[in-house]
Structure formats: structure tokens, C-alpha cells
Amino acid sequence: MDNFKKLEEAYSNDEFNLKIQKKMLCLENEISKFIEVIRSNPNIHVSKNLEYRIKSRISFLEKVKRKSYDETWEIPNDTEEIEKVICKNLPDLIGFRIKCMFFEDELNIYNAIKKYYNDQKFSELITLNFNENTKQKNGHKIYKVSGNLEDFNFEIQIKCSLHDVWGEVEHKQIYKGMQYDPQIKEKKIITEAIFSVLESSDLQLKAIFEHKTSLQESINSLFFQYTFEQISNEANSVFLANHYLSFFEIFKEKEYQKHIQIFLSKKLNGDKYQRIKLSIQETTSVSVEEFINRYAKFDLEVVNGIASVLYDGLNFEDFIKFLICKVENISINNDKDDEALNISFNDDEDDNTNDTSSEKEAMKNNIFSIYDKSFTKYSPER
């Protein structure tokens, strides 16, 4: 019997497969313990589900031929001895895959395994090798560790979800294509382009995943959910995201945020919200008409509508006055603070008149510079 047939017969033996399964379960238990430990690390996003497999008969025989194991291994005649040769020399007899969320996690988990092993937390029967060539034929890096448990070789691969899916397609369609494919070069180019896209997507997904929503963002989001239907019906539009952003920017001070919180607490408890009366003053630096003519009326009306959910009797003109005076009052208060630190020796009345005019113009420019960020400027062509 030639060596290939000997290997085929030994690998097909049911008792031999049972031995491999027992070793695989021992390893699965050890690696699962490691995963449980690193899952407590907030900087590592690892799946608790460990994947494992024993190399299939077809895959084994294909590898024997491809790697010429039947010619390079010393194959004895005794079946049990042949089994020992397979276990000792086949590097990926048993395979494990640790899955994670992001590409960055692959390296972090690899380093964690190394530390766990160096700290002697794996069974003393397990030997790991961290000197593997981690460069694949496709040129991409793969984090893997080879090991041995009582002369049974195994391999641990670490792959994030995107890498895993891409790798399966690339492995089956490109690396292990079973049939002749005249378009193989084009497919390689396409799969490489897809990999670049996935790497970029990975970075974006990680940024989204790690974004921590603040309490205020959560409150604003809840306010949006409770009021959107009403506002969209009034505005006859569902494209209101920017208007809500403008509203939250304008009403960001603590006193207004408190009103939003009161509104939400009433809603959550099923109670009726009593709208608040805002103090409206006359404008001094910009007229209502001048302000309205500068911006798209629709923008102003929508934000006025959102504000009216909280505030009573807030007609359009009063809302504009409120916007203007809000900036004026802040600026005046800041000026008073500055005056308290400075003493003026200027008694020239003409100079004071000129100063008042320039201050008014400066105030107007300040008001417009602030609201230009919130509202679309009016254009007759729109």
C-alpha cells in the first residue's frame, strides 16, 4: 500500500477521529476560559462563541497532495503509528477561530493570548508557538498561533467579522477555486478592492461604536421622538433634522434645558405639560423685519414651531424678538463684566455718540454671525 493510501485509511478511522474530538474538547475548554477573561477588558471586543473544527477528510487528503506529505513524512506501516505521525506533523489538524468586532481587536487578542500563555494560565500540557509566519498568500496579515497538546497539533486564528466574511469568499473563490476560471485575475482585483473598502468601513464602524452618547444628547433625542410627528405635520415636511439641531443649539443654556427635561418628565409620566411664558423684550440693534429678511422664513417658522411646544404664546414676531434679544442680553452682560474691571476717563460726548453707533453695528454683526450657523440665508433664487 502506498503512503497516500496509508494516510487516507488512518485518517478515515472512526476511533482516530474520536481521539481527535476528545483533544479538541479539552482545548475548547481552555481557550474558552481565556476568552472569558479578556471579555472583561473594555478595549477588546471579542465574541464569546468560539468556533472550532477538525480538518475534514477531503481537506486533509487535498493538503497531503498539495504539500507532498506522503513523500516527505516518514510513514510507518502500523496504523496507530501513522496516526501519531499525522497528529504530530499536520499543523492545523484541529482549528479554532476567535471572532472579534474590529481589525484592531485582532492584534489586541493576539497579544492577550501571548501574555496569558507567558503567565502560565493555560494548561501545562499546552505548548504555543508565536513565531508563525502571519503573511498570507494574498499579502494580508493574519493573526494566528500554532500549538500542541500531547502531540496533537492545533491552530488558533483570530479574525474580526468583516475580515472573516471576506476571507471565506477569497479562500473559496480565489485561493481554493475548484474549477478553471478565466476571470480569476479580475476577481482577485475586485476582492482586493473590496478589502480596502472593508478596512475603511471598519474604522468608521469602530468610531460609531465607541461614540458615547452624553446625557444631554439622550435627552435631546427623546425630545425629538416626542415632538417630531407634531412638528412634521405642521411644517408639512419630514426633513427636519437640521431644524432640530438649530433648536438645540439656540436653547442650549441650562434654563432652557431644564424646560426640556420638565416636558419629558411630564410625557413619561403621562401628565400634561404646562407651557411656560417667555419674557419678550424689544430689540435695540436689529429690527424684526431686518432679521426675517436675512433668513429663509421656513427655517425660522419650523424652529419657532419646535419652541412653541415648550413656550406659550410664542408667535412668529415674538420668537424673532426673543432670538435677537437673547444675543443682545448675553453681550450686554459680558460688557458689564468687562466694565467692572476697567475705569473710563473719556468724557467727550461726541466720542460717546460714535461709540454707541459702532457698538450697535458690532452687535448686529455679532447676532448675524451667530444665527448664520443655524438658519439658511434668504435667497430670491431659491
Rank of each mutant, 00 (worst) to 15 (best):
N3T: 02
E9I: 12
A10V: 00
A10M: 03
N17V: 12
L25S: 09
E30Q: 10
K33W: 01
E36L: 07
V37R: 08
I38F: 03
S40W: 01
N41D: 15
P42F: 07
H45I: 05
H45P: 06
K48Q: 02
S56C: 07
I58H: 12
L61Q: 06
K65I: 08
R66F: 06
K67W: 09
S68E: 12
E71Y: 06
E71A: 11
T72H: 03
C87E: 03
N89I: 07
R97A: 03
C100A: 11
D105Q: 09
N108V: 02
A112Q: 07
I113W: 09
D119V: 01
L125S: 14
L128D: 04
E132I: 00
N133K: 15
N133R: 13
T134A: 12
D151N: 11
N153S: 12
E155A: 09
I156E: 02
I158K: 01
H163F: 14
W166V: 08
E168M: 06
E170F: 13
H171W: 04
I174Q: 08
Y175T: 09
P182I: 03
Q183W: 10
K185Q: 14
K185M: 13
T191D: 03
E192L: 13
A193C: 08
E210K: 15
H211D: 05
F224I: 15
T227V: 08
T227Q: 05
S232R: 06
A241H: 05
S246W: 02
F247V: 06
K252N: 12
E253C: 07
Q257C: 09
H259Q: 14
F263K: 00
L264R: 10
K266Y: 11
K266I: 01
N269P: 04
G270M: 09
D271Q: 11
Y273E: 09
S287W: 05
V288N: 11
I292P: 01
Y295F: 15
F298K: 14
L300C: 06
V303K: 01
V303A: 00
V309P: 00
F319D: 06
F322L: 15
F322G: 08
L323G: 02
S331F: 03
I332H: 04
D337Y: 14
D338F: 14
S344W: 04
F345E: 11
D347A: 10
D347V: 13
D348F: 11
E349T: 08
D350A: 11
S357P: 00
K360D: 03
I367R: 00
S369C: 06
K373W: 03
T376D: 13
K377V: 10
Y378M: 05
